[in-house]
Nucleic acid binder design. Structure first.
Length: 557
RNA sequence: GCCUGCGUAGUUCAAUGGAUAGAACAACCCCGUCCUAAGGGGAAAAUGUCGGUUCGAUUCCGGCCGCGGGCACCA
């Protein structure tokens, strides 16, 4: 709206111009609520100085925009706009009228999003790195749903293949306890070592074939028991982290299906046979060649993914957008896989398929490596966080300490993972995560709970929120508050939950500063009712924002 | 070798080509008869390097230096 008005004013004053300009929130609140660089951009074409142009535009625009209270010429020729007091008050009352809908949109209404994430190897305990995909995927799922899409959460765990065979071989060889996920993980490490050093490579490959063929009762039983153990751990973790999958596709289902699909598309030229293997020549679409079926006739990851695609497509035929969240090392791989999938599934070739690469997680002590013994498992990190949270929670106002400790642990972990752009590598600082201070999940939760308590105090003091009697100028917090829906929209379309994290942290900081300087639960303050209304609006914003991050904001802490 | 991602305070992260590069942690200083100190306030501290494009570059382009990922039968 503002942009169109500015554009019209420029046309009327200076005629047509070709340069494109922006209208955005300035980085500094001191520079107003919106700013445009139009004067700088058209200066050359118009042949006048940016500041002169800006002044003329200011004169023309002043008083014509109902929501704008003031226009200033600033800096090199920026035009800064300050929104009217009433605008902010309207936002606050809007939030209080429908707090759960605040930030929701219909941007993706009608879309059916298939979102695949988590997808672990079912032969070892999950480590923090494996949690990254789950945490990012869950946030994206909630963001899309909040924007009106129908989201289907899909888990695609690896239950078969060489990695699994290594573990099963060692479970038998060393007689480890298949019901203990850590023993299973230890078996995987042993199996991997025996495979890598070449000493038992043939044996393990034989186990792999036997698992595919299911022709060895003992191995098959061990295999199934190991899977049950791993799935049990996965269920527990997902329950703690707040993810419920709508569909699970096992690699063992996807394999045969992929084998069939790939073989069926050799004749029509999608795939080629080469050196006994079946390959896709990615060079035809500027990518690289990859093997889909190996020379032994077993499906590789690529054929399994074609099978996975087939199953997803079959079970959820109306999907409009397919997202797959995995580690960034699979970037090039997914380009090839999707290219092949578009040729195989021609009826779906125009739909949106996106790989969402996540960053690699390292510890402050370096890369995690089972050999170096510095692997941080998911249950370990959550356990430590819960333990630390419980100590603090014991002194809190919460009725249920354990429940609160869980919420805090999850928020602390997820904040650490979601605070940076999802594709960039993460250095996970456990000490930092445990500190609960400064920019952190618990900081957001604390602010939320603080407002909960404040609301009770206000009630007791006889202050009830009113969004109509306002002080003259907007408080800084109000100037941050109204931007929430824009941030949510941007976080969704750009797949950038970190924008939401940054925003919520700024909002909480702004509120805490407001709280430190203003009396709210004070019936003698004429603006206390309005300030309480703001506080409640902030609380609703944090609650919705934290939900979108896959976390929960407690009422008390 | 080819392809690709990344180098921002001591550390971990921000910044659709804009204004004085913004936070947090750590180190330093201040705030407790006052609605939760998991809080607030203050001071100090950064764009790897050399060029180019631009009114304006952390951002776009190129060279160099450094780090990571991928490149046929692993996932």
């Amino acid at each position: 709206m503002l942009k169109e008005a500015i554009q019209a004013a420029v046309h009327e004053t200076f005629g047509v111009f070709t340069a494109s300009f922006t209208v955005e929130h300035p980085a500094e609140l001191a520079h107003g609520d919106y700013a445009t660089n139009v004067a700088l951009v058209i200066a050359k074409e118009v042949g006048q100085s940016p500041r002169d142009i800006a002044s003329q535009l200011k004169a023309r625009l002043e008083g014509t925009l109902p929501e704008v209270a003031a226009i200033e010429v600033a800096g090199a020729g920026f035009l800064n706009f300050r929104l009217a007091r009433s605008y902010f008050a309207d936002v606050v009352s809007g939030i209080l009228a429908a707090p759960h809908a605040w930030g929701a949109s219909t941007h993706f209404a009608g879309e059916k999003v298939l979102l695949e994430y988590t997808s672990p190897n079912l032969i070892k305990p999950l480590h923090v790195g494996n949690l990254v995909g789950n945490i990012i995927g869950e946030s994206l799922a909630r963001l899309y749903a909040f924007a009106g899409a129908q989201v289907t959460r899909v888990n695609y765990p690896s239950d078969i293949g060489l990695t699994v065979a290594k573990g099963v071989w060692a479970l038998k060889e060393h007689g480890l306890d298949v019901h203990d996920i850590h023993a299973v993980g230890k078996a995987y490490v042993l199996g991997n070592a025996a495979y890598e050093d070449g000493s038992r490579k043939d044996d393990i490959e034989a186990v792999n074939r036997a698992l595919y063929a299911k022709n060895d009762e003992e191995l098959t039983a061990l295999h199934e028991a190991a899977l049950r153990t791993a799935l049990g751990e996965l269920d527990t973790l997902c329950a703690q982290l707040g993810t419920t999958f709508d569909d699970v596709i096992y690699e063992s289902e996807a394999g045969p299906r992929g084998l069939e699909m790939v073989r069926a598309h050799i004749a029509d030229g999608v795939f080629d046979e080469s050196n006994g293997a079946v390959i896709y020549r990615g060079e035809k679409v500027d990518l690289h060649t990859r093997v889909f079926i190996n020379a032994q006739g077993l499906p590789t990851y690529e054929a399994k993914d074609i099978g996975n695609f087939a199953l997803k497509h079959e079970r959820h035929p109306a999907w409009t957008r397919m997202l797959v969240v995995t580690g960034g090392e699979q970037r090039e791989y997914f380009k090839v896989m999707f290219a092949a999938a578009r040729e195989v599934f021609t009826e779906a070739s125009n739909r949106i398929m996106q790989h969402v690469p996540t960053g690699f997680l390292t510890l402050t002590t370096g890369k995690m490596s089972s050999r170096l013994g510095n692997v941080l498992t998911a249950d370990e990190v959550l356990g430590d966080l819960r333990e630390a949270a419980r100590e603090r929670a014991a002194e809190s106002r919460a009725e249920n300490i354990d429940e609160l400790a869980d919420l805090i642990a999850v928020a602390a972990l997820k904040y650490q993972i979601l605070r940076q752009a999802i594709g960039s590598d993460i250095v996970f600082d456990k000490e930092r995560a445990l500190s609960f201070e400064g920019a952190s999940g618990p900081y957001l939760q604390y602010t939320h709970a603080r407002i909960g308590s404040l609301t009770e105090k206000a009630l007791a003091a006889g202050v009830a929120e009113v969004a109509t009697i306002t002080p003259e100028g907007p408080y800084e917090i109000e100037r941050v508050l109204y931007r929430f829906p824009e941030v949510v929209a941007e976080a969704t379309t750009a797949h950038e939950p970190h924008q939401l994290v940054t925003y919520l942290t700024e909002l909480a900081g702004s509120f805490n500063s407001f709280y430190a300087h203003e009396r709210i639960a004070d019936a003698t303050d004429p603006y206390a009712p309005y300030k309480l209304a703001i506080a409640k609006a902030v609380k609703a914003t944090i609650a919705n924002g934290m939900y979108l991050l896959g976390t929960t904001a407690p009422e008390k802490m």
